[in-house]
Design a protein around this nucleic acid. Structure first.
Lengths: 139, 139
DNA sequence: ATGTATGCAAAACATTTGCACCTGG
DNA sequence: CCAGGTGCAAATGTTTTGCATACAT
């Protein structure tokens, strides 16, 4: 029951919010831009404005339901939060996104922030490259 | 003689390009947005259009003279390339940017990319936090 | 000369906002 | 009923582009 998630997050349970959450949960593609979500809603037959999609995603981010990736190249990409922190590997050729966790890197980041006198609030790590499939295609 | 750098990069030596390069080299602030560079040019009395600043910075990036940081929050920031790779620490309160290099992280990234079958082309790592000075101010 | 580079204004783009209307609790 | 949510269109902020003019070689 997703309405619980919304209520828990202090958000009124409305149709647009439920539908956006549904899209994020049910779409195979785990990482979606606001535009992607908007298009998915249209295909689903829901008449929800793009501005609302942006508002809802931003609220979800504030509520910790969703996190926003800041990838190179214009538009933001969102993913459902599943509790576990992770970083991303992006294929520059096919835009596939994979996730990984590396405790060694996490620890080094803490050490570096401490050395520089920073109180770390968050961090973002993206590795860009060409995935296995695209390497094959390119010969 | 900066004109050499431009010629070496395959760029015709023009006044706007020389001036932008000069700003990047002589400004205390190592990390500048296009707008920052544009304002610095105006203060210097140079009548160079913002569009040109963008074009020049993009060409410099292509030529490897400059690198573009993709920081959260809208506008891109540029820095002169000095040969050494490094990552960044950003203060979310005063926007100060510090640099660091960590060979352990570099190596782990290579390993992770290899494990996932990616041919790594580049990576970006930003640690966000509150710097020492801002911690003091905030009490 | 002549192929590029520049300046300006307009376009493009992702995202945000103002406001009248609608809706969930 | 009423605070809060939504849709639409217009505004925003950054970056890009078309085109006529100016410049480097």
């Amino acid at each position: 029951m997703e309405s619980q998630d919304l209520r828990k997050a202090g958000l009124k349970v409305t149709l647009p919010r439920l539908k956006v959450l549904e899209i994020l949960e049910q779409t195979a593609q785990r990482h979606m831009s606001a535009e992607d979500v908007y298009k998915a809603l249209l295909e689903m037959g829901e008449e929800i404005g793009l501005a609302t999609v942006y508002r809802v995603l931003t609220q979800f981010e504030g509520a910790g339901l969703v996190s926003r990736l800041s990838i190179e190249g214009g538009h933001a990409v969102f993913e459902l939060v599943d509790g576990s922190h992770h970083d991303h590997l992006l294929c520059v050729s096919c835009n596939r996104i994979e996730e990984f966790v590396d405790e060694v890197i996490e620890e080094r980041q803490r050490v570096i922030a401490a050395e520089k006198g920073f109180e770390m609030t968050e961090h973002s790590l993206y590795i860009y490259g060409i995935c296995k499939e695209c390497q094959k295609k390119a010969g």
